[in-house]
Computed example of a mutant assay.
Amino acid sequence: MLNKIMMSGRLITEPAVTTKNDLRYCKFSIAVDQPKRKGIDTAETDNFTCLAFDDNANAVSFLYSKGGTITFVGSLRNAPDNTAVLIVEELHFKNKFAVKVDVNSDQLF
């Protein structure tokens, strides 16, 4: 079975890394515009909850902020409350971007 999605949307929450029981994750929400329908000027928006783990969590927290656009490949999972959660597996960047260095750890992003 195949469970892959690609999403591009605008962050509606500020991403931050959380550590719980030696697990690092970043939880954030994105707004994704639906395709415009003929005769309608405004597009409706869907909101999704996303989770990134380990290095992806660090990258999302460091490179993105509320209001920015993010594109990623991931999978769809059920949360304990029976809602859908998007799991970030690969980050994709549009065009060129500047390489940033975490000055505290000398790690490149």
Rank of each mutant, 00 (worst) to 15 (best):
L2H: 08
N3W: 03
N3M: 03
I5M: 00
M6I: 07
M7L: 09
G9Q: 03
L11K: 00
L11W: 00
L11V: 01
I12D: 00
T13P: 03
T13S: 02
P15F: 00
P15N: 01
A16C: 05
A16I: 05
V17F: 05
T18M: 13
T18R: 13
T18N: 12
T18W: 09
N21T: 06
N21R: 06
L23F: 10
R24K: 08
Y25W: 06
Y25S: 05
C26I: 01
F28L: 00
S29D: 09
S29C: 10
S29W: 06
I30D: 02
I30F: 02
A31E: 03
D33M: 04
D33T: 04
K36N: 10
K36E: 10
R37W: 15
R37T: 15
G39L: 09
I40P: 13
D41Q: 12
T42S: 14
T42K: 14
E44G: 07
D46T: 11
D46H: 12
N47H: 14
T49C: 14
C50K: 06
C50T: 09
A52G: 04
F53P: 08
F53W: 11
A57D: 02
A59V: 14
S61V: 01
S61P: 02
S61T: 01
F62I: 11
L63I: 02
Y64C: 04
G67D: 02
G68E: 12
T69N: 10
T69G: 08
I70M: 02
I70R: 02
T71P: 08
F72V: 03
F72P: 03
V73K: 05
G74R: 00
L76H: 06
L76R: 07
R77H: 11
R77M: 07
P80T: 13
D81H: 11
N82W: 14
N82S: 15
T83P: 15
V85L: 15
E90H: 04
L91R: 07
L91A: 10
F93P: 14
K94L: 12
N95D: 09
K96W: 11
F97E: 14
V99W: 09
K100N: 06
V101F: 04
V103Q: 11
V103G: 11
N104L: 07
S105N: 10
S105C: 08
S105E: 05
Q107T: 13
F109K: 11
